[in-house]
Computed example of a mutant assay.
Amino acid sequence: MGLLDSMKDRLGPAKGRVSDLAQRHEGRILHGLDRAARVVDERTGGRYSDRIRRGTGRAKEAVDRLAHKGGPGAGAHGPVPEADTDGSAPPPSAPPPVS
């Protein structure tokens, strides 16, 4: 058993607990993310509004994936790619190049 396999075995129960907490407290987590984003945006004078908005959106998507909304493995924007048997995730699909 390799190092990554042993780490996956140890982190498996923790992932279940985190997922359960995300399901139970999703509203509070999302509210906290919005509040933190608003405070940071005010303190930076709006200079980084776009970056803050993107980061907040990504954090909300991560909470959504953790809470397993819409069934196992589904997030706000469709299913989360499953890992191959060797533990590597499939490559993300990219749009075709523009000529």
Rank of each mutant, 00 (worst) to 15 (best):
G78I: 00
K69H: 15
L33A: 01
R17V: 12
V39M: 03
P91G: 00
V39C: 07
A62T: 10
V40N: 01
P79T: 10
L11V: 01
E61S: 11
G16E: 07
P79W: 10
G75D: 00
S19K: 05
P95G: 01
S99C: 00
T85I: 08
R51P: 01
D20S: 14
S49W: 05
G16V: 07
E61G: 11
L21F: 12
Y48Q: 04
R17T: 12
Y48W: 06
P95S: 11
S49N: 12
D9Y: 00
G75P: 09
G27L: 04
H77E: 12
P92S: 01
R10V: 10
E61Y: 08
R10F: 13
R47T: 04
T56R: 13
S88R: 13
G2S: 13
A67E: 04
A76P: 07
D20I: 03
A74F: 15
K69C: 13
E82K: 14
D84M: 07
A22V: 08
K15T: 06
D41M: 02
T56E: 14
D34I: 08
R47V: 03
A74C: 12
L66M: 06
M1E: 12
L3I: 13
R10A: 15
H68K: 09
S93K: 14
P92F: 03
Y48H: 03
P91D: 06
G55P: 08
R24F: 15
G75M: 00
A59C: 09
R65H: 11
H31S: 05
D64S: 15
I29W: 04
T56L: 09
G57Y: 08
R53W: 03
S19R: 02
G70Q: 09
G70M: 02
H77Q: 04
V63E: 01
G70H: 08
D5A: 07
D5Y: 01
D20Q: 14
Q23R: 15
Y48C: 02
